[in-house]
Design a protein around this nucleic acid. Structure first.
Length: 781
DNA sequence: TGTCCGCTCTTTTTT
DNA sequence: AGAGCGGACA
C-alpha cells in the first residue's frame, strides 16, 4: 500500500474518500453529498486503477450525465495520468457511448451505420403524421402527450411488444402512468392507442434508418440482450464501470450498465439522492438507495464532509432539503467558517432583476474579483433572455450553456438536414426540411401528395420523387416538380461525390453554393444576415476541424471511420449529442467570463459566487409542479443543487415577473422562507420588512389559488359554461369581480382548459379591456 | 397552389 | 415571446 502516493492527489484524500478510491473489486456504492469530492474520488480511482493496479485504460468506462461533466472529468484524469494514457479511457454520456457502439454494430441491431439521430422536433413531426394516418384527433391524443408517453415507455426499456404485454398483465404501470398523464395534459388516456402509435412509430423509424435519443439506449440494450457475441466482446473489453450521478439513472440505463458489468461486477456507482432532479426523464433514485440490496457484497462508502461551501451556505442548503419527506438518512457538514451572509433582493421586474445582478457582479469586479467567479443560475432557459440583454448592453463577458443550441439554429439545422439526407437517403425528417428550403415551389400540398404516393408505393419520399421527376410517373405533383428537378440532380451529384471519398467540408461548400444559400439567407433574414452567415462559416470550420482530428482511439475498429460518409455521420452525431456553449463579449484567449445556465446543467459544477435568479412561486418551484407534493420535492432538490454550487457567496433574487403576457404578481418562492432567517442579508431591499410583506401577500393570495383541474375527453370539448365552482368560490357569467392588478371587471365567459378554469373578464378601468385569465388572483367583488 | 400575414396557443428541466 | 396554424391573396 505504498505506491498509492504516486497518484498526485491520493495523499490529500480523507479517510472515506481514500477508502472509496481504493475500493478493490466488486460492486460499490458511494453516497456522496454535495461538494464532498465525488468527482475527485472517481478521477483518483481511475488513476489508481491504472497506475497502481495496472488496469489497462481501455477497460475502463466512466459514465456521466452531461457532456460538460464528461469533458471536465476527462481533463482531470489527464492531469493525473497524462493525456497519452487517458486517451483510451471512455468517459462519456450514456447516449454518446451507445451511439458510438451502435455505429459499429448497427447491422446486428437492424440499422445501417449511417443511421440518423432524430431530435425532438423530428420525432414530433413523425408522430404527427402517424396520428393523422391513424385518424386520431388532436383532442383525443396530442402529439405532445403521445411523445411524452412513448419516451416514458422507452425509458422503462420496453419495446412496443413488451409494452403490449405490460398493458395486458400489469395494470400497475399503466395506472401509475395514467395519473401522471392526466395531471400533465388532461387528455383522454388509452394505453392501447398509445401502444398502436408506438409500434407504428418504431416501425417507421427503423424504415427511415433513424433513432431518437431514447432509441440509442433501447436499441443498444436490445442488441446486447439478443446478440451474445456483441455482449461478450464488450464485456471482455470493459471491466471497470464508474457511474457518476447515479441517482439520475433511469431503468433502461440501469439495465444497460447492469448487463455490461454482469461479468466482472466491478460496478462503482456514485450519487446523492438529494440531488435527484431528473425524475421527469424516468430517473429512479430508488436505484441508488436499493443498490446494495440487489448486488451481493456491495461495499458502501459515505462521503459527508463538504469541502466546497461556507458554513452559511451549507446550513441554508441543509435546512431547505430537510423539508423533503422522502430522502435517505444522512448528513452534510463542513469544517469551514460561516463566511458571508446570503444576500436576498426582491425586484420589481425581470429587467431590474437583471440590472441588480449585473450591478452586483460589476461592483465585485471593482474589488478585484473575476467575472469567471460568477455563475448565474435559473430554472428555465427563457429566463436567460433578460440577463443576456443586460450583460450584453454593459459589455460584460459571459458564457451561456443551453438556450439556443448551435445546431438548432435554423440556418444550421437546414444545412445539417442536407448533410443528413446525403448520408441517409431514408431520412424522411431531413427530406421534408430540405425539399422546399430554399423555396422551390414545392409546398405543403405537393408534399402531402408525395407522402401519399410514397405510402402507396412503399418507397421513401426521395425515391418516389426521383421516379416522378425522372421516371415519368404521372401524378398530381407532376406539375410542381419543375423547381425540384435541379435539386434532385444536385443531390445525386453530392451523394456520388461523398461516396467517392470526398471531404465532407467540400460537400458542404458545394451544397451552400448549389442551393445559393447565401442569397437565400440574405432575402429571408436581411436584418440579422451577418450573424446567421457567421454561423454558417462556423459550421464549415467545425467540419474542417473535425476532418483533421484523427479518429484513432482503439475503438475505431480496423480504422472503420475513414471514408467521408463515416466521418460526416460521426460529425453530425456529435453535433446532435453535444451542446456547445455560446460565448459573448469574451476577448480572445481569455477565459474570464460569467457563466449562465439552468440549474439542471449546473449539477456537478461549482463556482465561488453563485446567483440564483427568479426565486418565485411558479418559477422555482415551477408552475407545473405546484399541485403535486412529489414534484415540489423535486423542485426543492433543484433548489438544493443550486445552493450547493456556491463556495463563498450566494445571492438570491426574484421579481414580479411578467409571465406569458398574463401579468401575475409574484409570490416569493417558498424555498426562501425555508432558509434560516439569520443567514440572510436583506439590506439591499428598500423595504427591510420584506419578509413580513411577502408573508402577507402569501396569505391574501393563497385563498384564491386553485389547483389546476383535470378534465377528460368529452369534458374538454365543452368549452362554454354559465357558472362554475371551485374551492367554495362560485363564478358566474356577468358576475362582478376584482383582479389583483387590473381592478374591477365583469366575467364575460368561463372556459375550461387543461390548466383549470379561465375567466374572460372585461375590465372597466384598466386600459387592457377584455382579457382571459386563469381565475387565480381574481376574487368576487 | 404557394406564400404571406395575422391570429392563437403554449408556457420546464436534457441527451 | 415564439412557433404553428388557418385564411386571404397572388
Amino acid at each position: 500500500m505504498h505506491n498509492e502516493i504516486e497518484t498526485p492527489d491520493l495523499s490529500l484524500l480523507n479517510k472515506a474518500q481514500f477508502d472509496a478510491c481504493t475500493h478493490n473489486e466488486g460492486p460499490a456504492v458511494v453516497y456522496a453529498g454535495a461538494g464532498s469530492g465525488k468527482t475527485r474520488v472517481i478521477c483518483c480511482r481511475i488513476a489508481w486503477l491504472i497506475l497502481n493496479q495496472g488496469v489497462p485504460p481501455s477497460s475502463i468506462l466512466a459514465v456521466t450525465f452531461t457532456n460538460k461533466a464528461a469533458k471536465e472529468m476527462k481533463e482531470r484524469i489527464e492531469k493525473y495520468i497524462g493525456a497519452q494514457k487517458a486517451k483510451n479511457i471512455i468517459v462519456s454520456t450514456f447516449h454518446a457511448f451507445c451511439a458510438r457502439f451502435l455505429r459499429i454494430y448497427s447491422h446486428e441491431a437492424g440499422y445501417n451505420p449511417g443511421f440518423s439521430i432524430y431530435d425532438d422536433n423530428d420525432q414530433k413531426s413523425l408522430l404527427k403524421d402517424i396520428l393523422k394516418q391513424l385518424n386520431v384527433p388532436d383532442k383525443l391524443l396530442s402529439v405532445n402527450t403521445v411523445k411524452s408517453k412513448i419516451d416514458k415507455i422507452k425509458n422503462q426499456g420496453l419495446t412496443p411488444e413488451e409494452y403490449l404485454q405490460d398493458i395486458k398483465n400489469n395494470q400497475d404501470y399503466s395506472l401509475k402512468e395514467q395519473k401522471y398523464q392526466l395531471r400533465q395534459f388532461g387528455e383522454h388516456y388509452d394505453p392501447e392507442l398509445i401502444q398502436k402509435v408506438y409500434a407504428m412509430y418504431q416501425r417507421l423509424m427503423k424504415q427511415q434508418n433513424a433513432m431518437d435519443f431514447n432509441d440509442l439506449l433501447l436499441v443498444m440494450f436490445k442488441l446486447l440482450e439478443n446478440s451474445p457475441h456483441v455482449l461478450e466482446s464488450l464485456q471482455n473489453r470493459f471491466r471497470y464501470f464508474l457511474i457518476d450521478e447515479f441517482q439520475d439513472t433511469n431503468p433502461i440505463q440501469f439495465k444497460l450498465v447492469s448487463l455490461l458489468s454482469s461479468k466482472t461486477k466491478n460496478l462503482f456507482i456514485v450519487g446523492d439522492d438529494d440531488q435527484s432532479i431528473y425524475s421527469w426523464r424516468g430517473a429512479e433514485p430508488s436505484f441508488i438507495l436499493n443498490f446494495h440490496k440487489e448486488h451481493e457484497n456491495t461495499k458502501v462508502y459515505k462521503l459527508e464532509e463538504n469541502y466546497r461551501s461556507s458554513n452559511t451556505i451549507i446550513s441554508a442548503a441543509t435546512s431547505v432539503i430537510k423539508n423533503n419527506y422522502k430522502r435517505a438518512d444522512k448528513s452534510l457538514y463542513t469544517k469551514k467558517t460561516n463566511g458571508i451572509k446570503i444576500k436576498f433582493k426582491s425586484c420589481e421586474d425581470a429587467f431590474s432583476e437583471s440590472k441588480y445582478i449585473a450591478n452586483e457582479i460589476y461592483s465585485a469586479i471593482q474589488n478585484e474579483e473575476k467575472f469567471s467567479d460568477f455563475c448565474i443560475l435559473y430554472r428555465t432557459n427563457a429566463q436567460s433572455r433578460s440577463l443576456e440583454d443586460e450583460l450584453r448592453r454593459r459589455m460584460m463577458p459571459y458564457i451561456i450553456y443551453g438556450s439556443v443550441r448551435f445546431y438548432e439554429r435554423a440556418e444550421i439545422k437546414i444545412l445539417l438536414a442536407y448533410l443528413k439526407l446525403i448520408i441517409n437517403t431514408t431520412d424522411e425528417a431531413s427530406f421534408q426540411k430540405v425539399i422546399n428550403t430554399p423555396r422551390r415551389g414545392f409546398g405543403d400540398k405537393a408534399l402531402q401528395n408525395l407522402k401519399d404516393l410514397s405510402i402507396q408505393r412503399k418507397e421513401t419520399l426521395l425515391k418516389t420523387l426521383n421516379e416522378v421527376v425522372f421516371g415519368g410517373i404521372e401524378n398530381d405533383i407532376t406539375r410542381s416538380i419543375s423547381g425540384v428537378k435541379e435539386f434532385m440532380m444536385s443531390y445525386q451529384k453530392w451523394r456520388s461525390n461523398l461516396d467517392s471519398h470526398n471531404k465532407p467540408s467540400q460537400i458542404l461548400a458545394e451544397i451552400i453554393s448549389d442551393i445559393k444559400f447565401e442569397a437565400y439567407l440574405k432575402t429571408t433574414h436581411p436584418e440579422d444576415f451577418d450573424e446567421r452567415w457567421l454561423n454558417v462559416i462556423e459550421l464549415k470550420n467545425a467540419i474542417v476541424e473535425f476532418e483533421h482530428i484523427q479518429i484513432d482511439d482503439e475503438f475505431n475498429f480496423e480504422n472503420k471511420i475513414q471514408t467521408g460518409i463515416e466521418k460526416l455521420s460521426k460529425f453530425i452525431e456529435q453535433a446532435m449529442l453535444t451542446v456547445e456553449p455560446t460565448v459573448v463579449n469574451v476577448q480572445q484567449g481569455n477565459a474570464n467570463a460569467i457563466t449562465l445556465m439552468t440549474i439542471h446543467s449546473a449539477k456537478g459544477l461549482e463556482f465561488p459566487k453563485v446567483i440564483i435568479a427568479g426565486l418565485e412561486e411558479g418559477v422555482l418551484p415551477h408552475q407545473n409542479s405546484l399541485d403535486s407534493p412529489e414534484a415540489i420535492e423535486e423542485e426543492r432538490r433543484l433548489m438544493y443543487v443550486a445552493i450547493t454550487r456556491a463556495k463563498e457567496k450566494l445571492i438570491l433574487t426574484n421579481c414580479k415577473r411578467n409571465r406569458f403576457k398574463d401579468f401575475l404578481p409574484a409570490q416569493e418562492s417558498r424555498f426562501i422562507s425555508e432558509i434560516p432567517f439569520e443567514v440572510i442579508d436583506y439590506a439591499d431591499n428598500q423595504n427591510k420588512n420584506i419578509k413580513k410583506e411577502f408573508g402577507k401577500i402569501n396569505t391574501i393570495e393563497q385563498k384564491f389559488v386553485d389547483k389546476p383541474r383535470i378534465f377528460k375527453g368529452d369534458d374538454l370539448l365543452k368549452q362554454e359554461m354559465n357558472s362554475t365552482q371551485n374551492d367554495g368560490v362560485t363564478w358566474r357569467k356577468g358576475q362582478r369581480v376584482k383582479h389583483k392588478v387590473f381592478g374591477d371587471g365583469i366575467i364575460r365567459e368561463i372556459e375550461k382548459s387543461s390548466q383549470g378554469y379561465r375567466l374572460k373578464i372585461k375590465f372597466e378601468k384598466s386600459s387592457i379591456g377584455e382579457k382571459t385569465l386563469i381565475h387565480t388572483y381574481v376574487q368576487p367583488a
